[in-house]
């Protein structure tokens, strides 16, 4: 595989990894207020994404992929809401350990990395095109 096509393939794996990360971020934001439904039940636990470099043995490339989708082991915040079905005997409800500000920052970073990968694909394509243009002149 020639290096320029390989570059596009690598950047494509980056796009895929970053979009998975965006998906996880949106799951976290969507579930920022998802409590349990029985008294004292655990609410939604924040998910985390870990990337890892992967070696593509058929083409000898270092691509990137999602290595692990883990769970944030941080503590749940308790809120006083005695009327909720998830309230324990003291009237407190466990809320998810999702911090929307952190998720927003993560989303911006994923966005930025996605754009960088996209830029790489565009430039590799331009390089290939300028080689092809040699034949046209």
């Amino acid at each position: 595989m020639d290096p320029l096509t390989a570059a596009m393939k690598v950047a494509g794996s980056g796009l895929e990894a970053q979009s998975t990360r965006l998906r996880i971020v949106s799951e976290n934001i969507a579930n920022a207020r998802s409590t349990g439904d029985t008294p004292g039940a655990s609410p939604y636990r924040r998910k985390t994404v870990t990337f890892g470099a992967e070696l593509d043995h058929t083409n000898n490339l270092t691509t990137v992929g999602v290595k692990k989708v883990g769970q944030d082991q941080g503590k749940f915040v308790e809120e006083y809401d005695p009327d909720s079905p998830a309230a324990d005997t003291r009237g407190y409800v466990k809320m998810p350990n999702v911090n929307v500000l952190v998720e927003m920052a993560d989303m911006r970073e994923a966005n930025r990395s996605y754009e960088a990968n996209l830029q790489t694909i565009k430039q590799s394509r331009d390089l290939i095109n300028s080689t092809i243009d040699l034949l046209k002149s």
Binding site: D2, P3, L4, A6, A7, M8, V10, A11, S13, G14, A17, Q18, R21, T50, F51, G52, A53, L61, T62, T63, V64, E109, A110, S113, A116, N117, T120, Q123, S124, L127, T131
Partner: peptide, 21 residues
């Protein structure tokens, strides 16, 4: 041209792994 395209491949690998621990 070959050197440049290998360099582009290496840079693409770096960008793709910009968030890899």
């Amino acid at each position: 041209a070959e050197w440049l395209s290998v360099r582009q491949q290496v840079v693409a690998g770096n960008i793709a792994n910009a968030n890899t621990p």
